[in-house]
Design a protein around this nucleic acid. Sequence first.
DNA 1: TCACAAAATTGGAATCATTACAGTTTTGAT
DNA 2: ATCAAAACTGTAATGATTCCAATTTTGTGA
Lengths: 146, 146
Amino acid sequence: MKNQREVIEKLEQFGVKPSLQRIAIMEYLMNNFVHPTVDTVFNSLSASIPTLSKTTVYNTLKLLARQGAVLELNIDDKNVRYDANISRHAHFRCKICGSVYDLPLAGLEAVTVEAAGKFVITESQLYCKGYCDSCKAKAESAAHSV
Amino acid sequence: MKNQREVIEKLEQFGVKPSLQRIAIMEYLMNNFVHPTVDTVFNSLSASIPTLSKTTVYNTLKLLARQGAVLELNIDDKNVRYDANISRHAHFRCKICGSVYDLPLAGLEAVTVEAAGKFVITESQLYCKGYCDSCKAKAESAAHSV
DNA sequence: TCACAAAATTGGAATCATTACAGTTTTGAT
DNA sequence: ATCAAAACTGTAATGATTCCAATTTTGTGA
């Protein structure tokens, strides 16, 4: 559980002036590893910050992503998701329940090197999809019933 | 340049009954490696098929993706893109001009193996972003002018 | 060839995430 | 305390995608 001090330091480290709203949003991301959507963040915080506007959540998350403090994930067709874990890792999304998990990752550097010279690669994301542990059985029985 | 016969064979191979519209859409994808959006496909074909409906393009591309005949790419925040090249490869998107290119790929298998046991991974996509050859200079001058 | 049911297509309306914008509040320097 | 800049807010607009009911096409059996 990260405390406010750590959150504020994180924001300042990435050149984001800490405001009440920005601290709350960043704090939420640093303490909840669920790769939340804008809606999830908004709904989770609007009880404690009743005046919070969804536009602020949109703006703040875009700002945090632009400054490199968080990752913007496009693993979900519908909604953008955010991740405060900016270390090198891949993502997995269950095709049944929709949950997004982190995957340990080694070797991505080797993969991207092949394009060196032709393109300047600044970011890369590995998205995996399939069935999570608790949905495996469901997926198999569904396959049989076709 | 793929001819109609090859397109029809491809559709049948993936269990998609070939209709006039489906053939046209698949043919377009097989002959244009631009990773087009629904809109691009629709605009490119509506001249030759005046009655074509955008809903049909949506439905057909979703169907082709579901049957495994094409890839659905979420590399673009705004629009889904489609790719008739279903061999193992990564994608690159230029952050300035928005063009999407294929990248040769080796090593992705090694990367995904790490999650074996916990998740059943059925698909994976590696998305790289940065600056393409013709936008490199633009990116650098933009960086200086901040 | 005709009739009919199933599949495919169509177009307009509805949905829903995201963005634009204009007004209000907060912050920080003097 | 004052004032300008930055941040926040809420509503309206946008735009990709989906829904759905009506129409057209396809394929099969009489």
